Structure formats: C-alpha cells, structure tokens
Amino acid sequence: MLDHIALQVADPAASAAFYDRVLAPLGSTRLLDFGQVIGWGTTQPRFWIGPVTTEGTARELHVAFAAADRTQVEAFFAAAVAAGAEVLHAPRVRPEYHAAY
C-alpha cells in the first residue's frame, strides 16, 4: 500500500549511521543521499530520513521493517542493540497481528 515513508530526525548524520547498520541485515542499503535527506531500500528508496523542519515536540513513532525470515529479524535486532537502540520489546512472533509478525 505505501510506496515510501519519510521521518524527520534531529541529527541526520547520526540517524543515517544508525540506519546504515540496522537496515543492512534486511538487505537494504543507502540508495540516495542528498546530504541531510537520505533514502534506503533494496531496489528503490522506501525509507527516508531528513532534518526536522517543523516546530513542536517530537513524538514516538512505531516503524516496522519487513524481514524475509527469523534470521534477518535477529540480525536486525542485534545490529540495532549494538548501535545503541533502546530495547522496548525483544523480537517475538505476535500472531494477534498476523502469522509472521
């Protein structure tokens, strides 16, 4: 349904370094880089970040990336933790959403 999504981030350089690390296990790479606006994907950019351009307080956002299998899920999780991500919930199957979630 979605073609792509873009997030505003406070520190584009630090965020880019983080997403370079955590998206690699999913097969995604940095495909376009316009300085502070960067897009990752496998064949075309589907996930973008850019600098904050609006006023107000930042809010938490839940983004779930697709993985081909549990091995990719575990590799993504390990890369995120190694890159300093805060762990709210360890990966597990959540069939209440769908069979492979």
Score class of each variant (00 low, 15 high):
1 M>C: 03
2 L>M: 00
3 D>K: 06
4 H>F: 15
4 H>C: 07
4 H>P: 01
4 H>I: 03
5 I>T: 11
6 A>V: 11
6 A>E: 11
7 L>D: 05
8 Q>E: 15
10 A>M: 08
11 D>W: 07
13 A>G: 02
14 A>E: 00
14 A>V: 01
14 A>M: 01
15 S>R: 05
16 A>C: 08
17 A>I: 02
18 F>D: 04
18 F>V: 00
18 F>Q: 05
19 Y>Q: 05
19 Y>W: 10
20 D>P: 05
21 R>Q: 10
23 L>M: 10
24 A>C: 01
25 P>H: 10
26 L>I: 08
26 L>R: 12
30 R>V: 02
30 R>K: 14
32 L>G: 01
32 L>F: 11
33 D>Q: 00
33 D>I: 00
36 Q>I: 01
36 Q>Y: 02
37 V>M: 11
37 V>K: 06
37 V>L: 08
38 I>V: 15
38 I>S: 05
39 G>Q: 09
39 G>C: 09
40 W>Y: 08
40 W>E: 00
40 W>G: 05
42 T>W: 00
44 Q>C: 05
44 Q>E: 12
44 Q>W: 04
45 P>M: 10
45 P>Q: 06
45 P>E: 07
45 P>R: 06
45 P>I: 12
46 R>G: 07
46 R>T: 10
48 W>I: 01
48 W>T: 00
48 W>Q: 01
48 W>E: 02
48 W>N: 01
49 I>W: 03
50 G>N: 06
51 P>Y: 00
51 P>H: 00
52 V>T: 10
53 T>H: 04
53 T>V: 07
53 T>R: 02
56 G>K: 12
56 G>P: 13
56 G>L: 06
58 A>C: 03
59 R>Q: 13
59 R>G: 08
59 R>P: 01
60 E>L: 13
61 L>H: 04
61 L>V: 12
62 H>S: 09
62 H>K: 06
64 A>Y: 07
64 A>Q: 03
64 A>L: 00
65 F>Q: 03
65 F>L: 04
66 A>S: 13
66 A>R: 09
68 A>F: 06
68 A>P: 08
69 D>G: 05
70 R>A: 12
70 R>S: 11
71 T>A: 15
71 T>W: 12
72 Q>I: 01
72 Q>N: 10
72 Q>G: 13
77 F>H: 15
78 A>G: 13
79 A>C: 13
79 A>D: 12
81 V>W: 11
81 V>Y: 12
85 A>I: 09
87 V>S: 02
88 L>K: 02
89 H>V: 08
90 A>N: 10
91 P>I: 06
93 V>I: 14
94 R>E: 14
95 P>A: 03
97 Y>N: 12
97 Y>V: 14
98 H>W: 13
100 A>K: 15
101 Y>N: 04
101 Y>M: 02
101 Y>T: 03
101 Y>F: 13
